[in-house]
Structure formats: structure tokens, C-alpha cells
């Protein structure tokens, strides 16, 4: 009996091997099919992704908290050793900022008088949602982070995401209570920007490096190292005037911008869910609207 089983096994072995190989092929083909599907049918795949992330978001949230605590402990220790230098620096900064404060107060007063003279209708303020970063490490092929706020907090795909330092990126996919934020350094990131000083418009192209490339500029742009770059508000996606970064290198048409945001230490972010001038996701310049009011 045992012999017969053995001979049957010997007989079926090549078929089973073939089946195994075929199964492997089938699995590889399904992986390729999924890749192709994502390329042509973004919406459905995005929903699946968002659904899965939504399910595991509480776990990620729970795990990331102790890491954040440990990291801030280390940070505190580092701060302790540099307390004297830091104090010195802050004193200098404080005296500089006091001058700016006076200037700002004067300008605010002037601005409000001018607005009164023009019968200016104030726009609805910016609405934001706050969120914690719960997932990181896009690896080399995707520069993105996961946050613990989603559609339930009015976060939608395409919303701008900022930190206390400047622009972080935009929401690439939103689940109910979680979302993925595409960083401005990602390969697929395109941000309409403008230089703060001489108002030269351009597009900031992410290329997975730490310093995105500034392109689509006029030939004689007069940009210099250290120029501040802010969002221009063109393209109906971002509110205008958010700080993005400074120009770090100019080499034969290859202009690089170092972001203000330190993506390594990103813990809390704000999502701009509504901003002045945004109407149904489109921006109408305020000058146009004032004309309409008249």
C-alpha cells in the first residue's frame, strides 16, 4: 500500500511541480496586474489603500506615541547642553522681533484705516484641522507621511498641509480618520510658487531629493541664493503666501530650494481645509470679487 502511494506520488510529482511553477507565475502576473490597475484606475485603488490605512491607523497612532516621547526626551537632553548659546541667540532674536512687532502694529493700523476707506468686505477666515504624524518612511520611492485626520475632520484630497515652519505638502488620499500627505519633496509633487522679493513665478518640482527643483521660470529671473520662496496660490490648490523654503543653489538653470520644514522631526501638522478666496475648491482673486461687489 505504502509502495503504491509512493509510486503515485512519483508519478504526480512533475505535475505538481508544474502547478507550483504555474502558481508562481500567476502570483507574479497578479502583482503586475495590480500595478497596471493602479496606473489606470487610481480612484478604486486609492479607496482600498485609504480603507486599509484607516483600519490600522489606531495601531500606528498607539505605537508612534512612545517613539515621539522618547525622541522628545532625547531632544530635551540635547537642548539642555546648548541652553546658554540658545539663550544668547533668543535674546538677539527677541530684540530684532520687537522692532518687527512695532512695524507690524503700525501696518495693521494703517491697513485697517485703508480698508475702512475702501468699504472692504472681510473674507471668511482660514479653517484648519490639526493632526499628528502616525506613519513615515516612504522609503526611496515615495516621500509621504500618514496623519490621523481624515474626511471626518473635513480633510479632503488636495488640501494643503503646513507645519509651524511652512508648507509640508498636500493630501494625496483621505480616509475617514486618516490621510496620506504627499511631501513637497516627492517625485509627484508640483507646487506653484513665487519668490517673495521679486515676485518671479515658477513651479517647484519634487524629485525625491531633499531639495526640490524650481522650474518654469522666466529666463531673466534675477533670483539669488537665499531668496525666500512662498506659495503663489496659482492652480487653485494652495492658499497664497505660505513659506516654502529658500534657494540653496543656482547652477546653470538648475535652481534648488531647501524647504523650511524639517521632515525628519515632523510631529504635528495643520491641514488647510478652507481658505479665503476658495470657492468650491477654486480660487477667485479678491480683486475680482471686490469689483463684483461694486
Amino acid at each position: 500500500m505504502r509502495q503504491r502511494v509512493a509510486s503515485v506520488a512519483r508519478l504526480t510529482a512533475p505535475f505538481r511541480a508544474l502547478l507550483n511553477r504555474f502558481a508562481m507565475l500567476l502570483l507574479v502576473l497578479s502583482a503586475l496586474a495590480i500595478m497596471f490597475l493602479e496606473k489606470v484606475e487610481m480612484e478604486a485603488i486609492d479607496r482600498v489603500r485609504a480603507g486599509v490605512i484607516d483600519t490600522v491607523a489606531p495601531v500606528l497612532d498607539g505605537f508612534s506615541r512612545p517613539i515621539a516621547t522618547a525622541s522628545s526626551g532625547v531632544q530635551r537632553l540635547e537642548d539642555f547642553f546648548s541652553v546658554y548659546d540658545e539663550n544668547q541667540r533668543l535674546r538677539e532674536q527677541n530684540s530684532r522681533l520687537l522692532k518687527w512687532q512695532n512695524k507690524a502694529l503700525a501696518l495693521t493700523a494703517e491697513n485697517s484705516t485703508l480698508r475702512q476707506m475702501l468699504n472692504f468686505v472681510p473674507e471668511k477666515g482660514t479653517e484648519t484641522a490639526a493632526a499628528r504624524v502616525i506613519g513615515d518612511s516612504g522609503g526611496v520611492f515615495a516621500q509621504s507621511v500618514l496623519i490621523n485626520a481624515g474626511v471626518a475632520a473635513a480633510v479632503e484630497r488636495g488640501d494643503a498641509v503646513v507645519s509651524d515652519r511652512g508648507l509640508v505638502g498636500r493630501v494625496a488620499e483621505a480616509g475617514r480618520k486618516s490621510a496620506r500627505v504627499l511631501l513637497i519633496t516627492d517625485f509627484n509633487s508640483r507646487i506653484p510658487v513665487v519668490s517673495e522679493k521679486n515676485r518671479v513665478r515658477g513651479i517647484l518640482f519634487g524629485d525625491n531629493s531633499s531639495a526640490p527643483r524650481l522650474a518654469f521660470l522666466p529666463t531673466d529671473n534675477g533670483l539669488e541664493l537665499g531668496d525666500r520662496i512662498v506659495t503663489s496660490g496659482h492652480g487653485h490648490v494652495f492658499p497664497a503666501g505660505f513659506p516654502v523654503g529658500t534657494i540653496s543653489s543656482i547652477e546653470e538653470g538648475d535652481i534648488r530650494v531647501v524647504p523650511f520644514v524639517n521632515f525628519d522631526r515632523l510631529e504635528y501638522v495643520r491641514i488647510i481645509t478652507h481658505f479665503p478666496g476658495e470657492i468650491n475648491g477654486r480660487i477667485v482673486p479678491s480683486t475680482v470679487r471686490t469689483l463684483q461687489v461694486k
Binding site: V52, G138, S144, R180
Partner: peptide
Amino acid sequence: LALGLWQDILVGSPLGLHALVLLL
């Protein structure tokens, strides 16, 4: 395959990329 898809979803890489690599 499943682990590759899991990694793709989690880190935001093109879906199927790690699945293919891990399978091979």
C-alpha cells in the same frame, strides 16, 4: 505577495511594487 502589498499600502509606494520584488 501579501506582505509586499501590505508594505506598498503602508509606505505609499506604487501598489504591487514590493509585492513583485518580494515574490521574485
